[in-house]
Structures are given as C-alpha cells and as structure tokens.
Simulated scan of single mutants.
Amino acid sequence: MMMNDANSVLSWRADVIQDFARSELFERTFQEGMDLVEETAGYLDGAGRQESKSLSRNAALAYASESMRLTTRLMQVASWLLVQRAVREGDMAPTAACEDRYRLAAEEICRAESTAEHLPSGLLSLLERSERLYERVRHLDRRMYVEVEDEAPHPVLSQLDRLKTALGGF
C-alpha cells in the first residue's frame, strides 16, 4: 500500500471514529454502560453479597465465577467507552484510539457460555444485560476498527475524486 493510500485509510477511519464519538448512539451506549457498571457495583456490594451467603457451596463457586465474568465484561466495555469519550472531547486523537491496546480484550472470558444454575435472579439479570451490551460494543469495535479497512475508499477512486476536485469536476 502506498503512503498516500495508507494516510487516506487512516484519515477515513479517524472520521468514522469521530463521527461515532459525537453521535447520539454513542451517548446512549455510554450512559447505559456507566449506569450498568454503577448498578452492578451496588448489587455486588449489597444485595448480591447477602444473597450469595445463602447459596450452596457449588452455587457459591458459580456465583463467584459469574460475578468475576460480569465485572470483567463491564470493565472492558467501560474502558472502550471511555476511550471513545476521550476522542469526542479531544483528549485523544482518533488515530490513537485505533491502537490494539484500546480494543476489547478478554473475549474468551467475556463471551464464554455460563453453565451456572441456581444463581440469584439479580445476578442473572445483570449477566444477561451485560452480555447484550458487550456484544453491541464488540460489534461497534469490529465495525470501527477491524472491518473498516474493507470499507475504506478504494485507492483509485480516491485518486479520481482528487482529480475531479482539482479539475473542477470534469
């Protein structure tokens, strides 16, 4: 890939990232994510802690495992959302947000199937909601950072557009 083509793709990607960070979809997703983090913390420190004390040994182990999966999943989502907010507020360049260290990680933990039974309904509800949120953010991450090169402007078409602009539109 030529340097101009790479710069064109990077510039296009930066525009996509900035557009998303300024969108209503981002705002709603960010608010939902932060609310879910707060609700989960409250549950795990309060009602969840009390409910876990009455569980059988096997259920208590499942509760511990699933609560760790829940917090891992939510921390991945929250970190990703905070990066997008940093782009929106100008604290981070959109191209910096493309770095692998800002992608969702721990996918094998976050997406693993739960085999836990007999868990408190509060925990099950949080697990389900966090999984749906994680999958939406995962989809956004893939579309914005992973699959974007497949949809980037074709280098020849980019050159033709530049020629049209320079020559006043043929």
Score class of each variant (00 low, 15 high):
143 R>V: 06
103 R>A: 11
115 T>M: 07
43 Y>N: 03
63 Y>P: 03
73 R>C: 02
60 A>L: 01
159 Q>Y: 11
144 M>H: 13
84 Q>L: 11
134 Y>A: 02
70 L>V: 00
52 S>H: 02
105 A>Q: 14
116 A>P: 01
27 E>Y: 13
8 S>I: 13
26 F>S: 07
154 H>A: 02
96 A>P: 07
130 S>L: 04
94 P>R: 07
7 N>V: 00
157 L>C: 10
7 N>Q: 13
23 S>R: 14
58 N>E: 14
109 I>S: 06
97 A>Q: 12
54 S>H: 10
34 M>S: 13
11 S>D: 14
98 C>W: 05
166 A>F: 15
6 A>Y: 15
154 H>N: 14
43 Y>E: 03
55 L>N: 05
100 D>A: 10
4 N>K: 11
105 A>N: 06
115 T>D: 04
23 S>V: 08
69 R>Q: 08
133 L>W: 13
125 S>F: 05
5 D>R: 02
110 C>D: 00
152 A>N: 07
51 E>N: 07
78 A>V: 00
3 M>C: 00
71 T>C: 01
96 A>N: 04
46 G>E: 08
128 E>L: 06
107 E>W: 11
146 V>F: 11
99 E>L: 11
149 E>A: 07
147 E>V: 04
149 E>S: 09
64 A>Y: 00
16 V>S: 09
102 Y>W: 09
49 R>H: 12
89 E>Y: 04
23 S>D: 06
140 L>E: 03
17 I>G: 10
12 W>V: 05
33 G>V: 03
24 E>H: 15
96 A>R: 08
143 R>W: 01
56 S>E: 10
65 S>G: 10
93 A>L: 07
74 L>Q: 06
94 P>F: 11
18 Q>D: 07
58 N>Y: 07
164 K>V: 00
51 E>P: 06
21 A>Q: 04
138 R>Y: 11
16 V>E: 13
39 E>N: 11
84 Q>A: 12
117 E>F: 05
15 D>C: 09
102 Y>F: 14
47 A>R: 14
61 L>Q: 10
155 P>L: 01
117 E>K: 13
25 L>A: 12
106 A>I: 03
80 W>I: 08
84 Q>H: 08
91 D>S: 10
82 L>Y: 08
139 H>G: 03
92 M>Q: 05
53 K>P: 03
131 E>T: 09
124 L>S: 08
147 E>R: 15
69 R>M: 00
33 G>E: 01
30 F>I: 00
122 G>D: 05
26 F>R: 11
47 A>Q: 15
14 A>H: 12
41 A>C: 03
115 T>Q: 08
29 T>Y: 04
129 R>L: 07
142 R>Y: 13
58 N>G: 05
36 L>F: 03
147 E>S: 14
81 L>K: 07
10 L>Y: 14
131 E>G: 02
115 T>C: 00
57 R>L: 11
62 A>H: 01
91 D>N: 13
98 C>I: 01
112 A>N: 05
31 Q>A: 04
34 M>W: 04
82 L>D: 09
64 A>S: 12
96 A>D: 11
94 P>W: 12
16 V>H: 15
56 S>W: 06
156 V>Y: 08
160 L>F: 15
120 P>C: 03
76 Q>L: 02
52 S>A: 13
100 D>W: 10
35 D>M: 12
73 R>D: 03
116 A>Y: 05
32 E>T: 12
110 C>T: 08
129 R>D: 08
51 E>G: 02
75 M>F: 12
